[in-house]
């Protein structure tokens, strides 16, 4: 289990980015973190990953305090961040440096096949499309079989079609080993399609403002009324988190207005 105990972060320049975030995430749970720009989502994720540890409070994974990158925690960034001097297969195997070569090769092949890029193993990263590159990044993060996978707006640089494609794909991959996912996103639909729980954050300093359970069966239909209902709840919470008065009562306009406002 992953638990955050009053995690605070004050950057050296004095910015109070996180003001005591507490959160418990069960093994295998998918939690989406959503909130206005600059409210500390990335900071929170980096604190969990150990890349940029909290200044106060603690991140604890299975009873172990996380203060530096940990083998049980994988992270996927907004950009693929593939190493341009390694072929795709070597990028995927990057986190397996200590394993024997045959095992590495076998796991890399399996992972590439799993993300549908078996034919790209011997290709340079520059020869991939944006969506393919992000799939390679996902494979790279999953290959060491992390217990917790952190994703910071992993699909935000992609077009809408590729994005929903990769969302489905991520869920598919998740069913293999059921790691805990903590997903930071700007996209309400993405949060609701993927997550068991949506945490809405509010800024200055970053705190958890609201928590919305998504008790919809998977796979989720983005068009269904139940989906829309949850979406509206999230959007209302978002508007409140940013101190924006709910301008319209009408659900439909409300939803679009909210999305346009805080995007």
């Amino acid at each position: 289990m992953l638990s955050l105990e009053r995690v605070s972060k004050i950057y050296p320049n004095g910015v109070h980015a996180l003001g005591g975030v507490s959160l418990e995430v069960e093994l295998g749970e998918i939690v989406a973190v959503i909130g206005g720009s600059g409210c500390g989502k990335s900071t929170l994720l980096r604190a969990i990953s150990g890349l940029d540890p909290a200044s106060e409070g603690a991140v604890v994974l299975d009873g172990e305090r996380i203060t530096a990158p940990h083998e049980k925690i994988g992270i996927i960034f907004q950009e693929p961040r593939l190493l341009p001097w390694l072929k795709v297969a070597d990028n995927v195997g990057f986190g397996l440096g200590d394993r024997p070569k045959p095992e590495r090769a076998q796991r890399v092949t399996a992972a590439l096949a799993r993300v549908g890029l078996a034919d790209k193993a011997a290709v340079w990263p520059r020869e991939l499309s944006g969506g393919q590159a992000q799939r390679v990044a996902i494979a790279r993060a999953l290959v060491p079989r992390p217990e917790v996978l952190l994703l910071d707006e992993p699909f935000s640089a992609l077009d809408a079609f590729t994005r929903s494609d990769l969302q489905d794909h991520l869920l598919d991959l998740w069913t293999d080993a059921k790691p805990t996912l903590v997903l930071v996103t700007h996209d309400v639909d993405e949060a609701i399609v993927l997550a068991d729980r949506v945490m809405v954050m509010c800024p200055r300093p970053g705190r958890i403002f609201d928590e919305i359970d998504v008790k919809l069966p998977r796979p989720r239909d983005r068009q269904s009324a139940a989906f829309d209902f949850v979406k509206r709840r999230v959007l209302v919470a978002l508007d409140r988190s940013l101190n924006r008065p709910a301008t319209t009562v009408d659900g439909e306009t409300k939803a679009t207005a909210g999305a346009a406002l805080w995007w």
Partner: peptide
């Protein structure tokens, strides 16, 4: 810096960081 961070996320040692990230990046 973003690639160096990838190295950190995969817990490379200082030597491995030089060898696997810095050297190829600088070449």
């Amino acid at each position: 810096r973003k690639l160096v961070e990838v190295g950190r996320a995969f817990r490379l040692s200082d030597v491995a960081m030089v060898w696997r990230i810095l050297l190829p990046a600088v070449l």
